[in-house]
Design a protein around this nucleic acid. Structure first.
Length: 1187
DNA sequence: GAGCACTGC
């Protein structure tokens, strides 16, 4: 709205009112509107409420500070209303009166009345939360109670207190207008009569087993012979049956009318004709389409009503008795031109037993879309939202579950995907397909399909030519996918449209049974979706890969996947059963696994828009919903690995029934054991490893020797063999591949590690193990008896690359453990030691109570001591430094055969060798380190890299003006985070630059004087970076997301900060003006101090500006009231009292109170004067500036 | 071998 209120007010033309019931009562209506914020206007068809109300509002001076917004449930109606109102006030559509519907916008800067669909108003909320574009809102036809209307009514109720200047008119048919009035705190209701003719209602219930068609024939026969008849039936099938019977029984013209009819067929009802016409119609004729010239109505009393099933979570379309309101509406269809007769094919008792109103849509439909919009608008809990009829909590739960399925919600909060879905003007399921396609490079294809699925099917099937239509449409069919077929049709249509003139193209459409209008809607929606996709920075790419397209489609249809269980029958999510609808190309040869664009239950549950899917496609997008189970783990000699059978289910459907998989991924521990036992111990393995052959030979020989000599028990048992391999082979060896990889390196360090010797098996007793395994790697142990020598006791050989993972051998080897604990007891301070003597006995008792394989040494000893002797030994009292040398293991760090270092202090070795260890790990794993990075060109970083039991952690390291990628033996999240921060900073624009770029010159000047702004923006950027965890930032995509998030954060913060700054600067200027006029004195000094506080950096935020806005609103209300008070000597006191009342409403002392007090001072301080220097209007202007 | 009717940045 660029025009000024003055210009707008001047543009309002002379208003005249045609002779209609509403016109006669326009003064009363105007009076009610001017006195109340909300008015309910009830009136039937012909009352003139829709067309006259906008003019009455203009007459009241509405439409001047904002537009009059007028909503209609349907696009056609919105346009018709705009045309009608424009004509009546003598302007063009798009000038003083305009309209906006999807794809069409005819609204100008000077438009006073804007007619739109309610969906448009809903969509506008996103950009205009307080509907500031309007000073008046009319919700027309509110009794229709669509989802959108109910949502708007709830939203308006919450908005009204924030917009005291906004007027709202709710119009409704005369049914139950009090319902709306109560919703808006007892708003006044004005009822205007309609201008219709009386309708006589006759009840002619069908007999016990009478046919409905016969009932219609009888009813028609009863009616006077002249005049057209409108017959209401439930659906297409009833219409067809009745038409057949009726054509045999009457010479009148019989004409079907329902939504799926072609445009031409629908249009026939408007053609002139002679003789009687009988129109057989569905609910289309009740609201959307007015059949002209109807004198009689026959009402079968039923309709198909869409209902969401809480049990099966699918949409149902049952035939139900219609409500009384609906029956009344149907009857009214014959009172428009003359007196009418309505024959109901049911009894009066039946009528009276019916519900008064059709359930509002919010009680009948899936709620995912509404919940998504509410979340995007940050409206809080749906249970707290003031709906006229709150939806069923179970339906709310289901809606949330669907959003969870789509990845739009995470723990009730909107995710990034959720935000994207809320931007896309299609059903969330379809939006999800679009999002997925943007990731899979096939957005061009999926946009076409998603658009097709949300418009009405452009393929026409005229009643008489169905077979021909099917043949023509079959040209586009795809054997495995109804949805890919849309691409064929799209291509064909696009090519033809380019090749032909527009009239030739229209003729082609007609000839080939395509609806030109619906194709245009499809193309329009496609264009709109593409615009939104671009805005979301999705790449619109064509992949040409049907697999990618199908996978993207499946991502939106996960709870509509089905597995064939019979000839035609499918098992769907949560035990539902469905069949493929006969219109699908897949109906004849139903594949094993499908996904359906739609599941609707009519006579049975039918799937429409069916796609054959592969298990892998479902798995690719259903990760979070799949459950997997594994059976029969076994060693496969052929594959050389441990396998198991995997079963993957989605909502109870077996996507994969029995798939052989590597068991190591599932259970590495069990897998490893199976590998060791079957391959190594039992020898069921085909391998060329020399040690394997040698060991087999040795075992065979040993058996031989054992028989010849009696000197020893030589036969080696499986358990001993297992223990031998288990001790030497690290934990991450789980099959052939991992074994080979490990052994290739390990044998370089020690080629004989796996050589079985009878000694190794026999001598390697539990008390003196020759290897020690810890955290997946193996260290060799050596023993020395050298009292006083530095190597006395146990020596642990640690390969350099594994040093970082090495843990201290705190518990010693079993043989020395008792001695260790005894020595530790003796090392305790005397007071603690006394209760534990004799130490050797106590050591035995303590060791019986601990488990060295899991316990930590000192805490375990303290715990055991408490159990044994009821004594408390603080953990820190144990002192390993008092131990004699042979009880302290010596660590030898080995680089291959070379000793690098040795010592008893493992921690010191680790610290001093850390750089060498990292290098060794990097060398061992072949990991490529990088330097000089200034952008993310390192691909996906794995969390860790392992080689030979050594683990390295890829880490980004800040390195001056660039970043290095290093492999660290010890993970350093802080170092990584600093590196990522540095990279992000390099990838992002400088805050002050980006701020300055977005500002006009005047604001730049202001910016230079008020330096907190760039600092604030920098804070914003840093806060955004800090808000991103380092685990998110190990991948290129995570990094890109972070850059995008920070950029988006800056983009939104920028205008907010500028707005805040502008508000504050304006306020400051205003106060400067005040200060100039004030005589010097304490009051002026006071105000000057407060002005300084006003430009405090803390105010330069949206929150700061909002607080100033609050001050403004409170004060403004107070002053307005005060202004109305009589102009008498007491006026200042009244004004002062009002402002004091405002002050009392601001609870906490603080900046907000300061501001009000400051203004109070400027109003009433004796040095300034209540009037004169600061007048009330001037104060009002100042407050406006503050906002 | 079957399907009410609407609607959106």
């Amino acid at each position: 709205m660029v025009s000024t209120p003055e210009e707008r007010a001047a543009s309002v033309p002379e208003l005249t009112y045609p002779d209609l019931p509403v016109s006669a009562r326009r003064d009363e209506i105007a009076e009610a509107i001017s006195r109340h914020q909300v008015v309910v206007l009830a009136g039937e068809t012909g009352s003139g409420k829709t067309t006259q109300l906008p003019k009455i509002l203009l007459g009241l001076g509405r439409g001047v500070t904002g537009m009059i917004g007028h909503t209609q449930p349907r696009r056609i109606a919105a346009r018709a209303v705009a045309e009608r109102v424009a004509e009546e006030i003598g302007t063009e559509v798009g000038d003083l009166v305009g309209y906006t519907v999807r794809f069409h916008d005819q609204v100008a800067d000077r438009t006073l009345v804007k007619v739109m669909t309610d969906g448009v108003l809903l969509a506008e909320l996103r950009r205009d939360r307080d509907l500031r574009a309007y000073d008046t809102i009319v919700i027309d036809e509110a009794h229709e109670r669509s989802l959108t209307i109910d949502f708007l009514l709830g939203y308006l109720k919450e908005l009204l207190p924030r917009r005291p200047d906004l007027k709202v008119v709710i119009t409704s048919a005369t049914i139950d207008p009090d319902r709306f009035a109560r919703h808006f705190g007892d708003a006044p209701v004005l009822t205007v009569s309609g201008r219709t003719y009386p309708v006589e209602v006759r009840y002619r219930p069908l007999g016990e087993d009478a046919d409905q068609a016969d009932g219609v024939v009888a009813a028609v026969g009863e009616l006077p012979p002249d005049g057209d008849v409108l017959v209401f039936l439930a659906g297409e099938r009833e219409i067809r049956d009745t038409a057949e019977v009726l054509r045999g029984a009457t010479r009148a013209e019989v004409m079907p009318l329902f939504g799926r009819l072609s445009a031409a067929e629908q249009h026939r009802v408007f053609a002139a004709h002679t003789g009687r016409r009988i129109v057989l119609a569905t609910n289309v004729a009740e609201t959307s389409l007015t059949v002209p010239g109807i004198r009689y109505v026959v009402d079968a009393g039923t309709a198909r009503i869409s209902r969401y099933s809480l049990r099966t979570k699918v949409q149902r379309l049952p035939i139900e008795p219609i409500s009384q309101a609906s029956a009344t509406q149907r009857a009214g269809r014959c009172g428009r031109v003359a007196d009418g007769i309505c024959i109901r094919l049911y009894s009066l008792e039946d009528f009276e037993s019916r519900p008064a109103f059709t359930d509002p849509e919010i009680l009948r439909t899936g709620l995912a879309s509404v919940l998504l919009q509410m979340a995007a608008l940050e409206l809080g809990e749906i249970t707290a939202f003031p709906f006229l009829d709150p939806p069923d909590p179970r339906a709310v739960r289901d809606g949330r579950a669907l959003l969870d399925e789509l990845g739009a919600l995470d723990g009730g909060r909107l995710t990034r995907v959720g935000r994207q879905l809320s931007e896309l003007p299609v059903d969330p399921r379809l939006g999800r397909m679009v999002v997925e396609a943007s990731r899979r490079g096939c957005l061009a294809e999926v946009l076409v399909i998603a658009a097709a699925l949300s418009v009405q099917d452009p393929r026409e099937r005229p009643l008489e030519l169905q077979q021909k239509a099917d043949e023509l449409h079959a040209r586009f069919a795809e054997p495995a996918s109804d949805l890919l077929a849309w691409l064929n049709l799209w291509r064909y249509v696009t090519e033809q449209q380019e090749a032909l003139s527009s009239s030739a193209f229209r003729r082609l459409c007609k000839r080939e049974m395509l609806s030109w209008l619906r194709i245009r809607e499809w193309q329009d929606l496609h264009a709109q979706l593409r615009r939104v996709a671009r805005r979301l920075r999705f790449e619109v790419e064509t992949s040409g890969d049907p697999d990618a397209v199908t996978t993207s489609l499946v991502s939106g249809l996960l709870s509509q996947v089905g597995q064939r269980t019979g000839q035609r029958e499918y098992l769907g999510a949560r035990g539902t059963r469905f069949v493929i609808g006969p219109g699908s190309a897949l109906a004849k040869k139903p594949p094993a696994l499908v996904a359906a664009a739609e599941l609707v239950e009519t006579s049975r549950l039918y799937a429409r828009g069916v796609v054959r899917v592969e298990p892998e496609q479902v798995e690719a997008v259903a990760g979070h919903l799949l459950s997997r189970s594994y059976a029969e783990p076994h060693w496969s000699k052929r594959r050389g690995s441990v396998m198991a059978y995997e079963r993957v289910t989605l909502y109870g459907i077996a996507i994969v029934a029995r798939r052989a998989v590597q068991y190591a991924r599932v259970d590495p521990v069990a897998s490893r054991e199976i590998f060791l036992r079957r391959a190594l111990v039992e020898g069921d393995w085909q391998t060329h490893h020399a040690f394997f052959a040698r060991n087999r030979q040795l075992l065979a020989d040993a058996l031989e020797v054992g028989v010849r000599t009696r000197s020893r028990e030589v036969g080696v048992g499986d358990e001993e063999l297992y223990a031998f391999y288990d001790a030497r082979i690290p934990d991450d060896v789980v099959g052939t591949v991992t074994f080979d990889r490990w052994w290739k390196r390990a044998r370089r360090a020690d080629p004989t590690l796996l050589d079985l010797t009878l000694d190794a098996v026999a001598v390697d007793d539990e008390a003196h193990p020759s290897v020690w395994t810890s955290d997946g790697f193996t260290a060799r142990l050596g023993y020395a008896f050298d009292p006083g020598g530095s190597d006395d006791g146990v020596t642990v050989d640690v390969p350099l690359a594994q040093l970082a993972q090495m843990r201290e051998l705190t518990w010693q080897v079993p043989a020395l453990r008792h001695e260790l604990v005894t020595a530790l007891i003796r090392g305790l301070p005397k007071a603690l030691r006394v209760p534990l003597v004799p130490a050797p006995d106590t050591a035995t008792k303590l060791l019986a109570l601990v488990d060295p394989s899991v316990d930590e040494l000192f805490p375990a000893l303290s715990r055991a001591a408490r159990q044994v002797g009821q004594v408390t030994i603080p953990v820190e009292a144990w002192d390993a430094s008092t131990l004699p040398g042979h009880l302290r293991p010596t660590y030898r760090v080995m680089d291959g055969p070379r000793e690098v270092a040795r010592g008893e202090d493992l921690g010191a070795l680790q610290a001093s060798l850390a750089p060498a260890v990292s290098e060794a790990v990097a060398a061992a794993s072949g990991f490529e380190e990088r330097t000089g990075l200034t952008s993310w060109d390192v691909g996906e970083l794995p969390a860790s890299v392992s080689a030979d039991g050594a683990v390295g952690y890829p880490t980004l390291v800040e390195d001056g003006s660039s970043v290095s990628l290093r492999l660290r033996a010890v993970p350093s999240d802080a170092e990584h985070a600093a590196g990522v921060r540095r990279l992000l900073a390099l990838a992002l624009p400088s805050p002050s630059r980006s701020l300055a770029d977005g500002l006009p010159v005047a604001e730049r000047l202001a910016l230079s004087r008020h330096s907190p702004l760039p600092a604030l923006l920098a804070d914003c950027q840093l806060a955004a970076i800090d808000g991103l965890t380092s685990t998110d930032l190990r991948s290129a995509s995570g990094f890109d997301a972070a850059v995008a998030a920070v950029r988006a954060g800056l983009a939104t913060a920028l205008p907010r900060i500028v707005r805040g700054a502008a508000a504050v600067l304006a306020a400051a200027a205003e106060l400067d003006g005040l200060l100039d006029r004030m005589p010097s004195g304490p009051a002026r000094e006071d105000l000057r101090a407060q002005r300084a506080a006003l430009v405090h950096p803390g105010f330069v935020t949206e929150a700061g500006a909002a607080r100033l806005g609050d001050v403004g609103r409170y004060l403004r209300a107070a002053v307005v009231r005060a202004e109305r008070a009589p102009r008498e000597p007491g006026r200042d006191a009244v004004l002062q009292a009002e402002v004091d009342a405002v002050l009392a409403r601001i609870p906490a002392p603080g900046v907000l109170r300061w501001e009000v007090e400051e203004l109070r001072v400027s109003l009433f301080a004796p040095s300034v004067g209540a009037r004169g220097k600061v007048s009330a209007p001037r104060l009002l202007r100042a407050i406006d500036q503050l906002r």
